[in-house]
Design a protein around this nucleic acid. Structure first.
Lengths: 193, 193
DNA sequence: CTCATAAAGCAAACTTTTTGCGTTTGTCTC
DNA sequence: GAGACAAACGCAAAAAGTTTGCTTTATGAG
């Protein structure tokens, strides 16, 4: 019994989860948010609502659960030859995703969840990205900051802007944060943000 | 007609809002979160539920609205004699508040809201604090960074930790962020975070 | 193969949310 | 200030969503 999660991960249970996730995604794409209710999701997934209530508790947690799948750690990370380039490439993609309408909704669903474990997973995802990029950089002989410094200098400002000030969540600002964290203050200058 | 907000801010409307906000706060203090539903809030406020639904739409928005009042810009800010001291004092207080159970719930309510204006107000509140502290510092002849730099260097890391990694939302780390943003790297060294 | 039980189905209570319509009450104009 | 206008509220019925006890299915272990 080395199942990864849940007490009984086999067959039916897994099938239900898949069906429900698929139903959520389908309804998210093809329709207004009004349609996104537990009863409708259940219907679409061919399950009874009570199953969803018992497994996920409420809509917010279910949506957060589904949205978390957008953050796939197995996604292939960019490899541009420099840490700065990798960070910029990954960050550009991340910004684009999180600024899109579905991305924003997903982010909101996750933030609306009260489940600490879910937040934790977001953090770990980001850290794993940084670790991979830094590891590669060191393999190339590049110097890299410690992970927490990169979180402070790049991830935090970016995340803050995504949540509170989307207009400032731009690739240009990302470039500044990266430069400031990696190089010296080779960037000091004007610039709103 | 120089009303500050809403189309009809006078008399009854304002009274209802006050009563509802008061009811929410009362129920928040004296009870489990189960009791915090629109019908109960309405009952306590002496209003019909439909009023709340029409004005706020749903519980999340109402709670976010009430929670925003915790961020009072008119609160007296610390004055320790140095910008670093002021930032630390204000930040310590802010961290303590946001790490408390009611503070966490309030923060969560705000993050769960889909209303952009609400996020904006959070940002403006923080910026106004920074502006006041910096203005005072300059009056004393101190050098200060630009506001966006302080947001990047102090607010963003602090906020990120509050949301994703509470264990690292500590006064000690706050001190490092402040030192790094204000002074040179007089702090470089070990330290998780 | 059989058993124990986690998880799903079902359906009936129960609660919350929506909605139409009538009434109250600020606000603006004259 | 008197009246017109409309925003906001109250009420109550209808609709929708949620909870819950019990039954059925089928996984995983022996």
């Amino acid at each position: 019994m080395t199942g990864r999660e849940g007490v009984r991960p086999g067959g039916r249970s897994a099938r239900v989860q898949q069906a429900v996730h698929a139903a959520v995604r389908a309804l998210q794409e093809s329709g207004s948010r009004e349609m996104l209710t537990i009863p409708r999701i259940a219907e679409r997934a061919g399950v009874t609502p009570s199953t969803l209530y018992r497994r996920w508790g409420n809509l917010a947690e279910l949506l957060a659960d589904v949205s978390l799948e957008r953050l796939r750690p197995d996604e292939t990370l960019p490899d541009t030859g420099t840490l700065a380039g990798d960070l910029q490439a990954w960050g550009d993609h991340y910004l684009e995703e999180m600024l899109s309408v579905p991305g924003r909704l997903a982010l909101n669903d996750i933030m609306a969840s009260t489940d600490d474990a879910r937040r934790e997973r977001c953090r770990r995802y980001t850290e794993s990205v940084l670790e991979t990029l830094c590891w590669r950089a060191r393999q190339r002989g590049e110097w890299t900051p410690e992970i927490p410094r990169l979180v402070d200098g790049v991830i935090a400002p970016m995340t803050y802007r995504l949540l509170y000030d989307r207009a400032a969540a731009t690739p240009a600002n990302l470039a500044r944060w990266i430069a400031h964290s990696l190089g010296g203050p080779a960037d000091r200058g004007r610039d709103p943000a």
